[in-house]
Amino acid sequence: MAVTLTVEQQALKELGRALRAETDGKAIRKDLIRQLKQPLQPAVTEIKSGVMSMASGGLSHGGEPLRAAVARKIRAEAKLSGYAVGVRVRARKTEAVRGFRNAPKRLNSPKGWRHPVFGSDRWVQQIGKPRYFDEPLEGRKAEFRRAVIEAMDSTARRIGYRIKL
């Protein structure tokens, strides 16, 4: 499968390469990553509060609550090199929560998930909070794009590099 990078992704990748050549490139790179992730933080907070506001029920199980485990795994990420260059909000799988690895995905799905009822042969369909992850990000793409370009531009000016957008 071929991967096509957008102009901004290619420019971000080239800026990452330019930072490697700088003497204080690691510190500048950390600042750039912080600037890239900063505009996503309100959306991340909104996503986490969305999953935490989901209704809860059932028996006590003694482990980590599902909602808290899913919220803990949601974070903003920035990548300057490699396969998937860019900035994104990501919900990692929840390995240790009662064997429910795909909890972030299934809680977001309008179809929900099926699971057996404890102590019986019955299976039930359960729905989490559909679109808790998608809604805070919708309609903000232009805002995020503008913030990424501003962060790239300020970093490029800082090291005397010219971005080709």
Rank of each mutant, 00 (worst) to 15 (best):
T4G: 02
I159Y: 03
S49H: 10
G128Q: 04
P130T: 07
P116I: 08
H115S: 10
P110Y: 04
M152F: 00
D134H: 03
R145K: 11
E8K: 06
A27V: 11
E14T: 09
I47G: 04
P39L: 08
S81M: 08
E46W: 01
R20E: 14
A78F: 03
S53A: 15
R90M: 11
Y132E: 05
A96W: 03
P104W: 01
A91K: 01
L66Q: 08
G63Y: 05
P130K: 05
L137I: 09
R162K: 13
Q35M: 11
A21L: 14
K79M: 10
K129R: 15
R146Q: 15
Q125A: 13
F118K: 14
F133G: 02
Q125E: 13
G50S: 03
Q126G: 04
P110A: 12
E22T: 10
V97I: 12
G112E: 07
V51H: 03
T6G: 07
K79L: 09
R29T: 15
E22N: 03
T45D: 15
R114W: 09
M152G: 04
E22W: 04
I163L: 15
G82E: 10
I159P: 01
G86L: 05
D31S: 14
L32C: 07
R162M: 11
V117P: 01
R90N: 08
L15Q: 08
E95T: 14
L40N: 07
T6C: 05
Q35R: 12
K93W: 00
A18D: 08
S56C: 03
P42C: 11
P42S: 10
Q10A: 15
A11F: 02
G16D: 08
